[in-house]
């Protein structure tokens, strides 16, 4: 337990701190590019850099298992899902000029204000606190597994139920949309004049029953 500043110099960072700072700068730069670039696919690829940098930060904090889970799930799965989502929503490949909405200056004001407030509070609160990184790793697989299956078994099992519910929910969302697009509810979509509807078949759609088909679509979802 280290609270006093006796063995630590205030402006003499250790090697781990320098490495953390450099990787943190790369991570923060990639995050800023993720939220500011106008090319949608590049945003997803910069997100890979940011998440990978965070995995390296976990390694520097001796949380190995979290780092590998981060690499597997975020860099491996989530970014691939996002890229598939960009592909399926027909995102433009080049620069899209309307990637940012009109309230970006208000958003920038809010973000900078909250950043200043958070950084000020955090630095003021933990000015004399050091993490002791010596000794055995605090987040090795053995330690994490032991604590997870001794103390956190019930939330762990509940989480599996939540993942199952999310899986079923995603399947239901995708399937119902397809059946309404191809099946009985196409009259509800067809009479929209002038819309840029994609993927709604117009063949054989009568021009009546819009107010009838609307509630049936809503009921079909539930």
């Amino acid at each position: 337990m280290i609270l006093a500043a006796g063995s630590h110099g205030f402006l003499s960072p250790t090697g781990v701190e320098i490495a953390f700072l450099l990787v943190g700068l790369v991570t923060l730069g990639a995050a800023v590019l993720t939220v500011t670039t106008r090319q949608l696919v590049h945003a997803a690829l910069w997100l890979v850099v940011a998440l990978g940098g965070l995995a390296v930060e976990y390694l520097l904090l001796t949380a190995e298992f979290i780092a590998w889970v981060q690499v597997l799930i975020y860099v491996g799965a989530v970014v691939v899902l996002i890229l598939f989502g960009l592909m399926l929503t027909r995102a433009p490949i080049g620069r899209s000029p309307d990637a940012d909405s009109g309230n970006r200056w208000a958003a920038l004001t809010v973000a900078v204000a909250s950043a200043v407030a958070l950084v000020w509070v955090v630095v003021d609160a933990f000015r004399t606190t050091w993490i002791d990184l010596d000794g055995p790793a605090a987040g090795s697989t053995a330690v994490t597994g032991a604590s997870l299956f001794q103390n956190w078994v019930l939330p762990f099992e509940a989480l599996s139920v939540l993942l199952l519910a999310a899986l079923v929910g995603a399947i239901v969302l995708s399937r119902k949309a397809r059946s309404t697009g191809a099946g009985e509810a196409s009259p509800a979509v067809a009479p929209q004049a002038g819309t840029s509807q994609a993927g709604t078949p117009q063949a054989g759609a009568p021009q009546a029953g819009t107010s009838q088909a609307g509630p049936s679509r809503t009921d079909g979802v539930r």
Partner: peptide, 10 residues
């Protein structure tokens, strides 16, 4: 805060 900016501005 970077993510907050992205949520609000994108």
């Amino acid at each position: 805060c970077t993510g907050l900016y992205g949520v609000l501005a994108r």
